[in-house]
Design a binder for these strands. Structure first.
Length: 270
DNA sequence: GAGAACGTAATC
DNA sequence: GATTACGTTCTC
């Protein structure tokens, strides 16, 4: 079992079976083929000396039970979906907090970051929207750009930019999930979007095997409902489509609530 | 409108 | 060629 931090949740033999074709990474190989030289584990493998990240970022007890041998069915605890797999994104908040505690996420940008990000993220995009996560975490939250290329994307002026593609003019379309090949225009009109790789469902590594999509995979040809990319759920050009990137669908949601709760717990612990 | 079924693009 | 999964159509 890998000791690398598993952002998307638990893994177990049965889950390995249930997602036989799902790699450890939550992303499809095409996204995995980023030009970025490091994996997530690379950034997490050198935790700050004061905090044991592996100890902090662990599956829930229910997941630990599920990961134990002998479980033949991914039967979940009554609390399912738990924090790690909650479609609401709570686990993202938790992970962010944990990373911050571990010093893996800076609360304030370094000078270099400010400089580089000032040239990228802080620039308003065409819609006048700048990328800033401060409202969501109560502090400047850089969403360390080094992490984004893991999915082949990186932040850029409020749009996702394909790091692998590097086609500036395509970033808007890439943000909408269109693959470069699908943008060729000679594919007969059928354009398949790709998973963003960054939303909560995309980060899930395992199929629930219980939703209708999982149960009916042969006929349905659909990905697990809990792994269905939030971006792909939206229709291109549909309402709210333009805000999907900067907001991560967490604006005003239980994301900040979870953070507040976590901080409250921390204060109590401390 | 939601979910199921199907066609098929994309990938391995 | 097999598999996965997005997009569309159909059914309720």
């Amino acid at each position: 079992m890998s000791t690398a931090v598993d952002i998307a949740g638990p893994s177990s033999p049965d889950q390995a079976h249930s997602s036989a074709k799902i790699p450890n990474e939550p992303l499809r190989p095409s996204l995995k083929r980023s030009s970025h030289p490091y994996s997530l584990s690379h950034y997490i493998s050198s935790p700050s000396p004061a905090v044991d990240v592996k100890g902090l970022i662990q599956p829930s007890p229910a997941q630990q039970r599920a990961a134990q041998p002998g479980h033949t069915k991914p039967r979940r605890a009554p609390s399912w979906p738990d924090m790690w797999e909650s479609p609401s994104g709570l686990h993202l908040a938790h992970a962010a907090e944990l990373l911050m505690r571990a010093g893996l996420l800076a609360l304030t940008p370094t000078t270099a970051e400010q400089t580089s990000l000032g040239a990228q993220s802080s620039q308003p995009d065409s819609s006048g929207c700048s990328t800033d996560f401060q409202p969501f975490l109560g502090a400047w939250f850089p969403f360390n750009p080094a992490l984004f290329p893991l999915a082949g994307f990186q932040m850029g002026g409020g749009h996702w930019r394909s790091a692998a593609m590097g086609a500036e003019g395509m970033e808007g379309l890439v943000a909408e999930g269109y693959s470069p090949s699908s943008l060729g225009g000679n594919s007969g009109g059928r354009r398949k979007r790709k998973r963003c790789g960054e939303c909560v469902p995309c980060r899930r590594q395992t199929n629930c095997e219980q939703c209708s999509s999982c149960r009916n995979r042969k006929r349905g040809h659909q990905i697990c409902k809990y792994r269905k990319c939030e971006e792909l759920k939206r229709k291109p050009g549909g309402p709210g489509f333009e805000s999907r990137v900067s907001g991560f669908d967490l604006r005003g949601s239980d994301f900040t609530l979870a953070l507040a709760q976590e901080r409250s717990n921390t204060a109590l612990d401390g």
